[in-house]
Design a protein around this nucleic acid. Structure first.
Length: 931
RNA sequence: GGGCCUGUAGCUCAGUUGGUUAGAGCACUGUGUUGAUAACGCAGGGGUCACAGGUUCGAGUCCUGUCAGGCCCA
C-alpha cells in the first residue's frame, strides 16, 4: 500500500468552483416550489415580530442595480431576523399608478383622448400588472425570500380603499383644502403636463423693460420713483401682482440726464442696462438693500385698481434683467411661491386654450396669449412706462407631443395642509431611529421647510379624489362620504368612480343644502401617486393581520427622504398621530468605478441580471456587504472581480472544513471545550467572539463590518493559521484519536457557524454546503437557527497568551523566510529551530497547552535559556532565533524530519509515533508493506 | 443657489473623546510548497490621509474656504 493511504486526507465532492450562474436558478426554483418562505415563517409563529415594510418600486422597466441593492439588503435583514428568533414576514410591494405608465401607453400608440377614461385605466392596469410579473421574476432571480404570491399592489381594491380612508381621515380633521397653483399647461393639448412630458427648445422671444410707479413708498421712496422691471413673457403683465427683489442685493435710485423721474435698478445691472434705454449719463441719488424696499407698493402699468407689492426672494439674480422681477403668481412657480408668502392670489388671465380672458381687460380679451406683445407695448407706451424691448434667445419648454410651446398657468388644486400638523410630524421624528444618524436631520429639515402638499393631479391613471361638488360648485369634502366611496372601491375597485355618475357614488338619499335639486358632480382629478405609496402603512401593515403597525424598519435609497419616507410620515401622522416606522435605514446610490453616477447615456451601467448570468448573484450579494451602503457605492467590473476573489476564498475555506469533517459525527465524536487541545481552545474562543461580533453587526445593519470581519477571520485566523497548522494533525494523527477529534470538533463548529452566519448574504452557497452536512437533518439551512454565543468562562489569560504567541510566530516566520532566502531550508519542515527565551516566555509557551513545534510547523524545536545565546544568534522583532537544517531523516508519511526513523522495525521509514498509529489503524500495512 | 452626505495605499474598507514611525483584506512583487492544487503558506514594496489656510505643544481626527463627486430641492 501507499503511505498516503495511512493518512486522513480531506475528502469531499463539494466543487471548488460554484458554477453559480447555472446552479443558482435550480436552487431558487426549489425554494419557491417548496414555499420555503412560508415554511420558515410557520416555524417562527410564536416568536416576537419583526416587520420590515417594503417600499414599492414603480412597476415599469427593467430592474437596475439600485433595485438589486435594495431587495438584497432587505433580504439579508429578513433572513437574518428569521434565523435569529423573530417572526419576520416580508410582503413585497409595487407602485402602479401614475404618469410613466400613461406615457408607456401613449408610446405604444394609444390615444387617451379618443377613449373613455375607464377604458384607458383598464389598459394602464393591464400594463402595470404585466410589469409587476416581469419585475417579480427578476427579483426572484436575486434569491429574495418573500411572499411573492401575495404582494401588495397599489392598484388592488383593498389598497385603494385603505388609501381613500386615510384621505378621509385627513379630510375629517380639516387638513384638505382647495387652492390654486401654477402648473405646466399645454394650451395645444388643453391639459396640465408633468416635467417628463416636456422637452426644451431654443426660441426667440421678446423681452420687455418697463417702469412701475411707486404708490406707497413707506417713507423710503417718493412717488416720483419708478421700479424698472423686466419680463420675458409679456402677456403675464396682465396678471402682474408684484415686483420681486433680492433681499441682499443693492439697488440704486438714479435720475438719468433729461429725465425728471427717478428709477430703481440693481446697481449690479446698471452698466449693462442703462445704454438700452439711452441713459448715457445719470446721477445715483441713493442706494438700498432689497430688504429695505420690502412691501413698498407700486401701480400696475395700466390698471389703476391693482397695486403691485414689492417682495423679497432669493431666486432673483444679476445674470440678466434689472434685478427687479415682474411677478405674476398665476404664471410662474417662483412667482407663486413668493406670492404665497406675501399673501398674493394666483391671478390668471389666460384660458385653457391659450386665449386671454376677461380678467385681462377689454383690450386683451379673446386674443391669443402669444399675439398680445404689441398690445402690451402700446399700453405701456401710452402710460409713458415703456423703456425698451429686446429679442432674446433662450431655452423654452414645449409639449413633447404637440411640439407647441407651453405656459405656466395656475389651475385649481387640492392641497393637504402640512402646516396644520407640521409640529406633530417633527415631534414624531424624535421617536424614530435613523441609520445613518444624519437621516433624521435631513428629514427634519425637509418637513420643516416644505409647503403644503399639492395632492391633486390632472390625470387619469390614479386613485380619484373622493370629492363631490354641489349645484353651486361648493366642494363636498366629508369623511363619511369618503368612507362610503372607500367601501365602493373595496368592492369594485376605483374604476367604479369613472364608470358611474356622482349620484351613484354618493350614499343613498344623500342631500345637501347647496344642491336644492339633488344634483351633484364629482371631482375629476386624481391623487398624487406619492399619496398611494405614502398610504402603504394603511394599505398593507394595517390591512394584513400578520403585519404590525408601526413597522420596525423602512429601508430605501436616500432619495426617499423626499419621497416615501416623507409621504408615509405625513399621511401616518395626519391620520393616526404617529410615525409609521420605528427605524429608518437609508442607502446611497451606486456609482461607477470612478465615482460618477450611472446612466444609460454614459454607458457605465451594470445590470444585476447580467452579473447573475455571468458571475452569479452571490457575487452581487457579497458586493452588497463589501461596501458602505450608507453612502454612495462604487461598482465596476473590476470591483466585482475583486469581490469574486473573496468569494472563492470563502468557498474554498468552507470546502476545506467540509473535507476534513466528513468522518466526524457531531454526537459521538464531539470533544467538550475543556478537554480540547490548547490551539483548539484558542480557536474556539476566536470563533465565539466572531459569532458575537457578526451578530452585533447584523443587529446594527453594519453590512460592510460583517464583510470585513468575515474576510479577516477566514484569511487570517483560519487559512493562514489554524487550518495551516491543522494539516499536521487531521491528516497525520490517528483518525479517531483525541488530537484529531478535538480539532474536528472545532472545525465542525466553525463550518456550521460560518454557513449559518453567511446564509443571509450567500443563501445559495450556504444551502449548497448544507447538502454536504450529513449530521444536519433539516431540509434547508434557512430553517436552522443562528449560532449562539457560548459562555466559555474567563478567557482573558488564554487570549493574552495566544496573542503573545502569535507575535512570536511572526518573528519565527521572518527568521524562516531569511533562512529560505539563503537556501538553508525550503519548506518549514526542513528547519530545526532554536528559540532563546526568557523565563516568562518559557512559562507562556507551557501555558499554551499545545505542541509548539506543531504550531510553528517545523521538524525540530529547541527552547533554551536566553542567556545561553551566543553573539551570532540573530534577533527578530526582539526574539532571539536560530535556524538550522533539521537533522535525521524524512518520513515519507508526514514529510517531517525525525531522529527515530525505524524505531519500529516493521516500519523502517516511519517514526515511532507514526508506526504506532499505522499498527493500530492500518494493520494491513504489516502484511502488505509499503510501495 | 439651498438642505444632507462623501473624498485615507491600485481596489474595498478601519482609524475610539486630536497624542509616538497611519492599519486590514484584496490586488501586486518575490519566494516556498505541490496531501485545500484553476488551491495553500511566508516575506516585501506601496499612502505629503483631495487641496489651502487656521486653532493647538501636537490634526487623518476640530474650524473656515476651495476643488471633485452623489442624493434631494430651487
Amino acid at each position: 500500500m501507499k503511505y498516503k493511504d495511512t493518512l486522513n486526507l480531506g475528502k469531499t465532492d463539494f466543487p471548488m468552483r460554484g458554477s453559480l450562474p447555472k446552479t443558482e436558478p435550480v436552487r431558487q426554483q426549489k425554494w419557491y416550489d417548496t414555499n420555503l418562505y412560508q415554511q420558515r415563517l410557520t416555524q417562527n409563529e410564536n416568536k416576537p415580530h419583526f416587520n420590515l415594510h417594503d417600499g414599492p418600486p414603480y412597476a415599469n422597466g427593467n430592474i437596475h442595480l439600485g433595485h438589486a441593492l435594495n431587495k438584497i439588503s432587505k433580504d439579508i435583514i429578513v433572513r437574518y431576523k428569521n434565523m435569529a428568533g423573530f417572526y419576520a414576514p416580508y410582503v413585497p410591494g409595487w407602485d402602479t399608478h401614475g404618469l410613466p405608465i400613461e406615457q408607456q401607453l401613449t408610446k405604444a400608440g394609444y390615444d387617451r383622448k379618443s377613449m373613455r377614461k375607464a377604458d384607458w385605466r383598464n389598459l394602464a392596469k393591464d400594463f402595470a400588472l404585466e410589469q409587476v410579473d416581469k419585475q417579480r421574476n427578476d427579483f426572484k432571480r436575486l434569491g429574495i425570500m418573500a411572499d411573492w404570491q401575495n404582494p401588495y399592489i397599489t392598484l388592488l381594491p383593498e389598497f385603494e380603499a385603505a388609501q381613500v380612508r386615510v384621505f378621509g381621515e385627513m379630510a375629517g380633521k380639516g387638513y384638505i383644502f382647495k387652492g390654486s397653483k401654477p402648473v405646466y399647461w399645454s394650451w395645444s393639448s388643453e391639459s396640465a403636463l408633468a416635467e417628463a412630458e416636456i422637452e426644451y427648445h431654443d426660441i426667440d422671444s421678446v423681452s420687455l423693460y418697463y417702469a412701475n410707479q411707486v404708490k406707497d413708498g413707506k417713507g423710503v421712496l417718493d412717488n416720483d420713483t419708478y421700479f424698472v422691471v423686466w419680463t420675458t413673457t409679456p402677456f403675464t403683465v396682465t396678471a402682474s401682482r408684484g415686483i420681486t427683489l433680492g433681499p441682499d442685493m443693492t439697488y440704486a435710485v438714479i435720475q438719468p440726464e433729461g429725465e425728471t423721474r427717478n428709477f430703481v435698478i440693481a446697481t449690479g445691472r446698471l452698466e449693462a442696462i442703462a445704454p438700452l434705454f439711452g441713459w448715457e449719463n445719470y446721477k445715483i441719488l441713493a442706494t438700498y438693500q432689497g430688504q429695505e424696499l420690502d412691501r413698498i407698493t407700486a401701480y400696475h402699468p395700466w390698471d389703476s385698481e391693482t397695486e403691485e407689492l414689492v417682495m423679497n426672494a432669493d431666486h432673483v439674480t444679476l445674470d440678466s434683467g434689472t434685478g427687479l422681477v415682474h411677478t405674476a403668481p398665476g404664471f410662474g412657480e417662483d412667482d407663486f411661491n413668493v406670492g404665497m408668502k406675501y399673501g398674493l392670489e394666483a391671478f390668471v388671465t389666460v384660458d385653457e386654450k391659450g386665449y386671454m380672458t376677461k380678467n385681462a381687460g377689454p383690450d386683451f380679451e379673446g386674443k391669443f396669449y402669444d399675439d398680445v406683445v404689441g398690445v402690451v407695448i402700446n399700453k405701456l407706451k401710452d402710460a409713458q412706462l415703456f423703456l425698451a424691448k429686446e429679442k432674446i434667445t433662450h431655452s423654452y419648454p414645449f409639449d413633447w407631443r404637440t411640439k407647441k410651446p407651453i405656459i405656466w398657468r395656475a389651475v385649481p388644486q387640492w392641497f393637504a395642509s402640512v402646516e396644520k400638523f407640521r409640529q406633530n410630524i417633527l415631534n414624531e421624528l424624535d421617536h424614530v431611529t435613523f441609520y445613518p444618524e444624519w437621516g433624521k436631520k435631513r428629514l427634519y429639515n425637509m418637513i420643516r421647510d416644505r409647503g403644503d402638499w399639492v395632492i391633486s393631479r390632472q390625470r387619469v391613471w390614479g386613485v380619484p379624489l373622493p370629492i363631490f361638488y354641489a349645484e353651486d360648485q361648493t366642494p363636498i369634502v366629508d369623511q363619511e362620504i369618503i368612507n362610503h366611496v372607500a367601501d365602493l372601491f373595496e368592492a369594485h375597485g376605483s374604476n367604479y368612480w369613472f364608470e358611474h355618475e356622482a349620484k351613484d357614488l354618493l350614499p343613498d338619499g344623500y342631500t345637501n343644502e347647496h344642491s336644492p335639486n339633488g344634483q351633484f358632480t364629482k371631482e375629476e382629478d386624481i391623487m398624487d401617486v406619492w399619496f398611494d405609496s405614502g398610504s402603504s402603512w394603511a394599505g398593507v401593515m394595517n390591512t394584513r393581520d400578520h403585519l404590525d403597525y408601526p413597522a420596525d424598519l423602512y429601508l430605501e435609497g436616500s432619495d426617499q427622504y423626499r419621497g416615501w419616507f416623507n409621504s408615509s410620515l405625513i399621511t401616518s401622522v395626519a391620520a393616526t398621530g404617529h410615525a409609521p416606522y420605528k427605524n429608518v435605514l437609508s442607502q446611497g446610490f451606486t456609482l461607477d468605478g470612478k465615482g460618477n453616477k450611472m446612466s444609460k447615456s454614459l454607458g457605465n451601467t451594470i445590470s444585476p441580471l447580467d452579473v447573475a448570468d455571468k458571475m452569479g448573484i452571490e457575487i452581487l450579494r457579497l458586493w452588497t456587504i463589501s461596501v458602505d451602503t450608507s453612502q454612495d457605492m462604487p461598482v465596476s467590473n473590476e470591483i466585482l472581480k475583486q469581490v469574486s476573489e473573496s468569494y472563492r476564498k470563502l468557498r474554498n475555506t468552507l470546502r476545506f472544513l467540509m473535507a476534513n469533517t466528513t468522518d466526524y459525527n457531531v454526537i459521538t465524536d464531539a470533544v467538550p471545550f475543556a478537554d480540547r487541545a490548547g490551539h483548539d481552545q484558542y480557536f474556539s474562543v476566536l470563533l465565539n467572539n466572531f459569532i458575537k461580533d457578526i451578530r452585533q453587526s447584523y443587529d446594527n445593519y453594519q453590512f460592510n463590518d460583517i464583510f470585513k470581519r468575515v474576510i479577516n477571520f477566514v484569511n487570517v485566523d483560519l487559512s493562514a493559521f489554524y487550518l495551516d497548522i491543522a494539516k499536521d494533525v487531521v491528516y497525520v494523527e490517528a483518525p479517531t484519536g483525541h488530537a484529531r477529534r478535538s480539532m474536528q470538533t472545532v472545525f465542525y463548529e466553525t463550518l456550521l457557524a460560518l454557513t449559518k452566519l453567511l446564509l443571509p448574504i450567500l443563501p445559495h452557497t450556504a444551502e449548497e454546503v448544507w447538502e454536504y452536512l450529513p449530521n444536519e437533518t433539516l431540509d434547508f439551512a434557512y430553517l436552522s437557527e443562528m449560532p449562539e454565543v457560548q459562555d466559555l468562562g474567563n478567557v482573558t489569560h488564554l487570549l493574552e497568551n495566544w496573542s503573545t504567541f502569535m507575535s512570536l510566530r511572526d518573528a519565527v516566520n521572518k527568521a524562516l523566510e531569511e533562512a529560505r532566502g539563503v537556501e538553508l531550508i525550503g519548506k518549514n519542515a526542513e528547519a530545526a529551530l532554536t528559540l532563546y527565551v526568557t523565563s516568562e516566555q518559557k512559562a507562556l509557551l507551557q501555558n499554551l497547552n499545545a505542541d509548539v513545534r506543531l504550531l510553528l510547523m517545523v521538524s525540530q524545536l529547541y527552547i533554551v535559556d536566553a542567556n545561553t545565546a551566543t553573539a551570532d544568534v540573530k534577533s527578530y522583532d526582539g526574539v532571539l532565533i536560530d535556524v538550522k537544517h533539521a537533522v535525521g531523516g524524512v518520513s515519507p508519511r508526514d514529510r517531517m524530519f525525525h531522529e527515530d526513523l525505524g524505531a519500529d522495525e516493521a516500519f523502517p521509514e516511519l517514526s515511532q509515533h507514526e508506526a504506532d498509529i499505522v499498527r493500530e489503524f492500518y494493520p494491513e500495512a504489516l502484511t502488505e508493506g509499503f510501495e
